[in-house]
């Protein structure tokens, strides 16, 4: 009990840290997917290829 009181409460910072990494990687993945779709579309436009 006593030892638990000594541990500083830094949960907020931990959450903030993990929010940063989740959002950051999320944005990057979204940009990868968006660019992939855009480029695929262009590719089809030039080749007339379906699928």
């Amino acid at each position: 009990m006593f030892s638990k009181l000594l541990i500083p409460d830094t949960v907020d910072y931990m959450i903030a840290g993990y929010v940063v990494i989740t959002v950051g990687i999320g944005i990057y993945l979204a940009s990868l997917i968006a660019r992939w779709k855009k480029t695929t579309e262009e590719y089809r436009r030039y080749t007339g290829e379906r699928d």
Binding site: L6, I7, P8, D9, T10, V11, Y13, M14, G17
Partner: peptide, 11 residues
């Protein structure tokens, strides 16, 4: 949980 820094150490 690290005792000196608390939960933030998990970052």
């Amino acid at each position: 949980v690290e005792k000196l820094m608390g939960a933030v150490q998990k970052v």
